[in-house]
Amino acid sequence: MQRGKVKWFNNEKGYGFIEVEGGSDVFVHFTAIQGEGFKTLEEGQEVSFEIVQGNRGPQAANVVKL
């Protein structure tokens, strides 16, 4: 599992990016966020996640808020 901080997340569009220290930013879609109810992330929030290869490159999967 990787760890990072949410760079930004757009609730209306349902996606954003996670900053990884020493690495490239990783795309995150709301469907990758674990948990119940409305799935969103806050700027600066710490998360753990896996990186998978999506249609447009690397993206976050199994995102857990820390």
Rank of each mutant, 00 (worst) to 15 (best):
V63N: 01
N55T: 03
E21P: 14
F30W: 10
P58F: 08
I51F: 06
R3G: 12
V28D: 00
F17M: 04
I18W: 00
V28G: 01
E50Y: 13
P58D: 09
K7L: 07
T40P: 03
E50C: 12
V20P: 14
K13F: 05
A32T: 05
G35L: 05
S24D: 13
V6W: 01
P58W: 11
G35I: 05
K39V: 06
E19T: 10
V28A: 05
A60W: 00
V26L: 09
V26I: 11
N10D: 06
K7E: 03
E50A: 07
G14W: 00
I18A: 03
E12V: 07
I18K: 00
S48Q: 12
G23C: 15
Q2R: 12
F9I: 03
E42P: 08
E19K: 15
F17T: 05
I51P: 10
V28R: 00
Y15F: 08
L41C: 05
I18E: 00
V64W: 09
Q53S: 10
I51N: 07
G14F: 02
G4N: 02
Q59I: 06
E42T: 12
V52Q: 13
A60K: 00
Q2S: 09
M1H: 14
V63G: 00
G37F: 04
R3Y: 15
R56F: 04
N11D: 15
P58K: 09
F27T: 03
E42F: 08
P58A: 13
F49T: 03
I51G: 06
S24P: 14
L66H: 03
E36R: 13
G35E: 13
G44V: 02
K13G: 04
G4A: 05
E46S: 14
G4H: 02
V63T: 02
T31G: 06
V28E: 00
E19P: 02
Q53T: 14
T40M: 09
V64K: 10
V28W: 01
R56P: 07
Q34T: 12
T40G: 08
Q59Y: 11
E21A: 14
F30P: 03
V28Y: 03
D25W: 03
K65M: 06
Q34C: 07
Y15N: 03
G44N: 06
S24N: 13
E46P: 10
K65P: 15
K13M: 11
T31S: 12
Q59S: 12
G16V: 01
F38Q: 12
S24I: 09
R3W: 05
G35C: 14
D25L: 04
A32H: 05
G57S: 06
N62S: 15
F38R: 09
E42M: 12
E43D: 14
Y15I: 04
P58H: 04
V47G: 01
I33P: 02
G44Q: 09
E46Q: 12
E36H: 08
G4L: 00
D25Q: 07
M1D: 06
K7F: 02
N10M: 06
S48M: 15
A60T: 01
V20H: 15
A61I: 14
K39G: 04
E50M: 11
G57N: 03
E50K: 12
F38G: 08
N55E: 09
N11Y: 05
Q45Y: 07
Q53Y: 08
K65A: 13
V52H: 09
V28L: 05
I51M: 14
I33K: 02
E21R: 14
I18R: 00
E46N: 11
N55Q: 09
Q34A: 11
T40Q: 09
V64G: 09
S24A: 12
G57D: 03
R56S: 06
F27R: 04
V63Q: 00
K39T: 05
N10S: 14
V28K: 00
I33F: 05
G23K: 15
P58Y: 07
I51K: 10
V20S: 12
Q2H: 15
E36C: 09
N55H: 15
Q59L: 14
S24H: 13
T40V: 09
M1Y: 15
K5L: 10
H29W: 05
T40L: 06
F17P: 00
G57F: 03
F9M: 03
K5W: 08
F9R: 01
G57Q: 05
G23Q: 14
R56A: 07
G22E: 11
F49A: 03
G23L: 12
N10F: 04
V26C: 08
S48R: 13
V20I: 11
Q59N: 06
G22A: 15
Q34K: 14
F27K: 04
A61F: 07
E21N: 14
S48F: 12
Q2L: 13
L41N: 01
F17C: 04
N10P: 01
F49R: 00
V63F: 00
K65R: 13
F17W: 06
Q53C: 14
K39L: 07
P58L: 11
I33G: 02
F30S: 08
E50I: 08
E42R: 13
Q59T: 09
Q2W: 13
R3C: 06
Y15S: 03
S48Y: 14
G23S: 14
Q53H: 08
Q45S: 10
V6C: 07
E42Y: 09
E12G: 11
V26A: 08
G35V: 09
A60Q: 01
K5E: 07
F49K: 00
G16Y: 00
I18Y: 00
N11F: 08
I51R: 12
I51D: 02
V52T: 14
G44L: 06
I33D: 02
K7N: 11
E42S: 09
N10V: 05
L66C: 07
F17K: 04
M1K: 05
P58M: 13
K39H: 06
P58G: 06
G22Q: 09
E43C: 15
V63L: 11
E46L: 14
Y15H: 06
S24L: 13
T31H: 07
T31F: 02
E19Q: 14
F9H: 01
A32I: 01
K7P: 01
K39E: 05
V63M: 02
F30I: 06
I18N: 01
H29Y: 04
I18Q: 00
G44H: 14
F9L: 02
V20M: 11
V52S: 11
E12M: 13
V26F: 05
E36G: 12
N11C: 08
E21Y: 10
G54L: 05
R3N: 07
Q34M: 13
K7I: 14
I33Q: 02
R56E: 07
H29F: 02
E36D: 11
K39A: 11
E42W: 08
F30L: 05
P58Q: 11
R56Q: 08
G44K: 09
A60H: 01
Q45F: 06
K65Q: 10
A60M: 01
Q2D: 09
K7W: 01
E50H: 07
N10R: 10
V20A: 12
E21K: 11
Y15C: 03
G16W: 00
R56V: 05
A60G: 04
G14A: 04
N62H: 06
G23A: 15
T31Y: 02
R3E: 11
Y15T: 04
E36Q: 14
G37Q: 06
G16N: 00
F9V: 03
G37W: 04
E21V: 14
V64T: 12
Q53E: 13
F27S: 03
N10Y: 03
A61T: 07
G54M: 03
P58S: 10
N55V: 13
E36K: 09
V26S: 03
L66Y: 08
Q53V: 13
E12T: 15
V20C: 13
D25H: 05
G37P: 05
K5M: 07
V47L: 02
F38M: 06
G54C: 11
G57P: 02
N62K: 02
L41G: 02
H29T: 02
V52N: 11
G23D: 15
V28S: 02
G16S: 00
V20T: 13
Q34E: 09
F27V: 03
G35S: 09
K65T: 12
A61H: 12
V26Y: 07
E42G: 13
E12W: 13
G4E: 01
I51Q: 13
I51W: 09
G37S: 07
T31Q: 04
G22Y: 07
Q2F: 15
V63W: 01
Q53G: 10
F49H: 02
E46I: 07
Y15L: 05
N11W: 05
V47M: 01
I33L: 06
G44S: 10
T40R: 09
Q45W: 10
K7R: 08
F9Q: 00
N62D: 15
S48P: 01
G54K: 09
V28C: 14
T31W: 02
G4P: 01
K7Q: 07
Q59D: 02
G23Y: 07
F17Q: 04
V6L: 04
E42N: 11
F17S: 04
L41Y: 02
K39N: 06
G54S: 10
V26G: 01
N10E: 06
F30A: 09
S24G: 12
T40E: 10
Q34D: 15
S48W: 07
E19C: 14
G22D: 10
F17G: 03
S24V: 11
A32M: 05
E36T: 12
K13D: 06
S48I: 10
H29Q: 04
